[in-house]
Computed example of a mutant assay.
Amino acid sequence: MDLVSERIYKQQDELAKLIDRYSVRDGVHATAIPSLFFMRHSNVTEPSYGVYKPSLCIVVQGAKEVWLAQERFKYSPADYLVASVDLPVIAQVTEASSDVPYMGFKLEFTPGQILEVLSDSEIRVEPKENAKRAMFVSRMESSLLDAVLRLVRLLENPKDIPVLAPLFMKEILYRVLQGQHGVTLAQIAIEGSSAYRIRDVIEYIMNNYDKSFRIEELAEIANMSVSSLHRHFKEVTAMSPIQFQKQLRLQEARRLLLSESTDAADVAFRVGYESPSQFSREYSRMFGYSPKKDIKRLRAQYDHRNRVRGGG
């Protein structure tokens, strides 16, 4: 093991111990630092569906896969993953055990924080450069782990968080912007860039996923032609605007069915479908089961996990 690899190994070992201290049980754990979350899983998980906000994700132990449309992003302690805009994804922990649980770190950020780092640094991005995929995996670097550790250590001294956390977050984003795919992250904050304009369209769809829209409306928001919008949107998100909207609708429908005692037809209308039969077909295509079977299956799994935790 060379000196750099040895240093990274020691940093990850310290990070794993800190995450272990603040996430005793399996699941996602918010921390005293706003926008910082820890994840812990003692078993390989089923695929989970959700929206990744702009965030830096690090695997400290184990391994994970994230699917964006048909693209698979695999990462482990040797890498880190970044989502630069809101993206509907499927995620799965692929390596975990009770002896060596999966441990993850997620730090959410905003385009404004990216712009602040760009303004204070000599990193330059060409606004006219073509938009790039808004998710990437890069090799882990010791300088990035250094900044991450400084941020996480603040949990030991909560009084320092208000002053120091913003500084360490800024350093973390600076390290990512300096990395192999830094330009992809920078683009979302550069006014006038294709990625910036697609971000506006994504925000509109996120806020209006249950409403129908014409593609011309989205092109107007982006100040692009319809063909340019399609091309750039697919480049950024790996899907068309309609596919993006469909994923949001179906994810929200599943959440509603799980959290409320309501029928599939009612939920179909609430998330924007005009035809319950079309909703049922698309739900089955995405999740592999009809709405009724899927929810019954998920509730049974949830009850089983609770019995195991409770020792029942």
Rank of each mutant, 00 (worst) to 15 (best):
L173T: 03
V176N: 06
V176R: 09
L177H: 01
L177D: 00
G179L: 06
H181E: 06
G182L: 09
V183I: 13
I188V: 10
A189Y: 00
E191L: 09
S194M: 13
S194F: 09
S194A: 15
A195E: 02
I198A: 08
R199E: 03
R199A: 14
V201E: 00
I202P: 00
E203Q: 15
E203F: 14
Y204I: 05
I205Y: 04
I205C: 05
I205D: 02
N207W: 07
N207F: 13
D210F: 12
K211Q: 15
S212D: 11
F213G: 13
R214E: 08
R214C: 06
R214D: 10
R214K: 12
E216Y: 05
E217M: 09
L218F: 04
L218G: 04
I221C: 13
I221K: 13
N223E: 12
M224V: 12
M224W: 10
V226E: 12
S227G: 08
R231C: 02
F233D: 02
K234I: 09
V236F: 10
T237I: 12
T237E: 06
T237D: 06
M239F: 01
S240H: 06
S240Q: 08
F244Y: 15
F244L: 10
Q245A: 15
K246D: 05
Q247D: 14
L248R: 05
L248S: 04
R249G: 10
L250C: 04
L257F: 06
L257T: 04
S259H: 02
E260P: 00
S261Y: 09
D263N: 13
A264D: 03
A264Y: 04
A264I: 03
A265G: 05
V267D: 01
R270S: 15
R270Q: 15
G272M: 11
Y273A: 07
Y273Q: 03
E274A: 09
S275N: 08
P276I: 15
P276L: 15
Q278A: 12
R281S: 11
E282W: 02
